[in-house]
Design a protein around this nucleic acid. Sequence first.
DNA 1: AGTACCACCTGACGGC
DNA 2: TGCCGTCAGGTGGTAC
Length: 262
Amino acid sequence: MPELPDVQVYKQYLDATSLHKTIKNVKVEDSRVLSNVTPGKLRNRLKGHKIESSRRHGKYLLAFLDAGFWLSFHFGMTGRLKYFKKMEKDPAHDRVLLSFVNGYHLAYVSQRMLGELEVVEDREEFIKKKEMGEDALSIDLESFTKVVKGRRGSIKSTLMNQKLIAGIGNIYADEILFHSRIHPKTQASKLREGDFQKIFNNMTKVLEKAIRCQVDPERFPDSYLLPHRHQEGKCPRSHGNLETVKISGRTAYFCPRCQAQQ
DNA sequence: AGTACCACCTGACGGC
DNA sequence: TGCCGTCAGGTGGTAC
């Protein structure tokens, strides 16, 4: 379900479990998740090597191999990582399995296979090729304002546009706009001067909070939209019914009282 | 430039 | 029980 916070938690998980361990074998259960590499080629490149470190950019997690290249993980809507020892614990929808010399395995799990694994030679070039904007947790207020200001689309689709800012998806766009008390359909070009700072501050606050909560909905404060983001959900602030509207094909949840239409 | 729609995939759920 | 439409925290292409 991976947006920036989810992928950051996966990064922490990868770092905690899978660094500096020699890869003994690579098993591709479904090659449709491989983007620019065949199963045999992937195995040849990874076998005998170790993941030394990792980086995240937007919704992409890149693992750096001691052989001098990167393995990029994108998770689509249903991707995740799972580290385990016994093969009986092998999770369902496991698509690629890295097996380490210590007997443990790291699975790339993806039920719907909308994500992909890709071998990347140059990280900067990869980000450029994907036309990704600055990462939502690295961008500063000045660049953020520059990127958002004057856009003709809605603020929600602007926040979700990976070419402008990388990392925000449907859930966190809604959360950020809820805290900013801005209707998701508001045209970015109609935002007022103070709105950019407000949205920027809430973007940082919400993403960092989600990471601290390990994206566990149970651990989110009740004042957040996420625990209430479902049909029948009530706004934790006004206690009124939440409403939904379609924006660029995705369902936006918002509180019509707190987030008045502009 | 921005949006609408479709495609890629699987599975859960509700209605008939 | 089975079939069907709809929906789901993503993204890329294409047609307006």
